[in-house]
Design a protein around this nucleic acid. Structure first.
Lengths: 339, 339
DNA sequence: CTGAAAGCGCTTACAG
DNA sequence: CTGAAAGCGCTTACAG
């Protein structure tokens, strides 16, 4: 900057004042500085600004894994929103048991806040949140229900599954196959609770009305798991008539396998996906699914985090639930007579 | 840090020496410092380090758009590779004519280097590269052929299309429909050149052997464009027997539309996609496609950029071509007799 | 080991 | 307007 000031023929103080839009400067001086910036490509050093007390205007994002389309959408939308508010995003992809290093790194960058997205080992996440609390770093947890001490934004998966199950029940289905809906995640527990609630309204018990063959086909990729599960279901003497999948890939894999066995969708069976990805419209028939309302979730997340960052919010344990959107398409239909 | 030093009961100099692993310190002192770091969560301020001369260890990435699956994979793999080398990635999504601000921002963060990925308006990109050259910021351009003054890494699309066309020619096809392969991009020019070369080996002229109906259906989303194009092709008195699509979505959209018209793939027609995304395996039949070898491209990009960053490379105009991988699946087959 | 000092790039209050 | 000074959080060479 000293060099730049010399180039313009002004003192460093004067240049600084122009850069910060302070008053009491001649227009000619201001113009000269701006011109010189264009000529030289000079920009103030953001690190120096931060040392002087300016916030880093950086938000750290911790994700468990980058490659699912939904995770990617969330990240992308999040970045867009933060960019609009002039925040830089730094992403850390967390490998199991390596979250400490990642968060420490973000801290060394003096990020203004941290957002966690996705499934983390619960006790590990809680440990991180504790550290952040001690440091006074604002933070927010997206899509990891069951952390009461933190501010969270979560899709209301209970509600989502109530709607899906209500829909299928209203079409006459009474026996349900679950595709990939298992595992030690709160999100799974929530989904099952939703299914259970809807069934209960019809006097049905979840253990009797639903069936899961996940134990036969551990997850490799979702699409393949869907196919394998469908193959196993198709061999049952009296298979379910409606299938609820953990996501769209699983649903489409299953649908294609069922179709390969000569079953028609939705005439013979109904299938529901989850996430409402673009592949829903590439499937035949179009896949009924549940939209996560990612824009809304991310807007809520950014809003809650920036409120903390900018010191306008001091509450803890703010649990924000986002309502899902059930999207009925052509893969669900009335239950066959005698189904 | 002063506060932390007081907490440990050491001088700032001593703490600093422990943190930087310098010699001449008792093990007891070293342990005490590390313990205190765990207790307090203290981390050195990366900005202060940078001011003192340490590189920011940050790489800026400029992308034209984040939401295509291929772009997302590239970004994700790039970040992984940079992370392994202890670099932070900062992403700028560039809106047309807004690249100046983005690059300036990266410069203010004093990034060690910048990678551009994707289609940019050529003169605008060249302008940015010129500025970076003047500033001495290392940079690299991925997937934007035709910038001779910069170091670039590009998929060899000419070769890709030679292989695709050779394959279809060897199956007996002589008339080709192009799906979405148009527009003022060097990547398109390269593809057409590849097709032309392969055709020339069989004495065929591209203007006669190929046909494009893109002008009838401007791009909205690729899948839909594919469907619309297929519909138009299906109405021709003598439609092509082989179709080359700009990407997998377009190919699958077209394939479904052709199938809806009662044409069988690959018995009646052959279709080739591009990018080898996971949806290739969700299509029926499985889609023949071209793999961009993204891991290789990104590894080459990171390698070339970090060589510049670390001062081991001074050449300009290094044009690295990545060989594509042709992936034959079930959507291509022998040309019908009399086709 | 400690402590004082210089300096990285900046801003800001102050005296001129 | 200028110029000198202090200070943000750090490292490093230096004298003790």
């Amino acid at each position: 900057m000293a060099e730049f000031a010399r180039y313009v023929g002004l003192s460093r103080s004067a240049v600084s004042r122009v850069l910060n839009g302070q008053t009491g400067l001649r227009q000619a001086t201001i113009d000269r500085v701006h011109e010189a910036m264009k000529e030289t490509g000079f920009t103030v050093n953001a690190h120096a600004l931060h040392l002087r007390g300016k916030p880093s205007s950086t938000i750290g994002v911790c994700m468990e894994n980058l490659l699912t389309p939904t995770a990617v959408s969330k990240l992308s939308i999040l970045q867009d929103l933060l960019r609009l508010k002039d925040y830089v995003t730094v992403i850390e992809v967390i490998k199991p048991a390596a979250s400490h290093r990642a968060v420490q790194h973000l801290h060394s960058l003096r990020v203004d806040g941290i957002i966690f997205i996705g499934h983390f080992e619960k006790s590990e996440l809680e440990q991180r949140l504790l550290e952040l609390k001690r440091q006074g770093t604002p933070h927010l947890v997206v899509d990891h229900p069951g952390i009461p001490s933190a501010n969270t934004v979560t899709l209301d998966r209970v509600k989502a599954m109530v709607e899906v199950t209500d829909h299928l029940l209203s079409l006459g289905h009474r026996r349900f196959g679950l595709l990939g809906v298992s595992g030690p995640f709160q999100t799974v527990t929530d989904r099952l609770e939703g299914i259970e609630r809807a069934l209960a309204k019809h006097g049905l018990a979840i253990a009797q009305a639903t069936q899961s063959l996940d134990y036969l086909h551990p997850l490799t990729d979702h699409f393949t798991q869907g196919r394998l599960l469908a193959e196993s279901f198709s061999k049952l003497p009296r298979p379910p008539t409606a299938y609820i999948a953990v996501n769209d890939e699983t649903a489409i894999g299953a649908m294609q396998e069922f179709q390969a066995h000569g079953w028609q969708v939705p005439k013979d069976i109904s299938i529901v996906g989850f996430n409402n990805q673009s592949i829903c419209l590439m499937a035949r028939p179009w896949l009924t699914s549940v939209d996560q309302q990612i824009e809304k979730s991310m807007a809520a997340a950014v809003d809650a985090l920036l409120q903390q960052v900018e010191g306008r919010l001091f509450k803890r344990g703010l649990q924000r639930k986002i309502a899902p959107l059930f999207v009925e398409r052509a893969s669900t239909g009335p239950c066959r007579k005698g189904g």
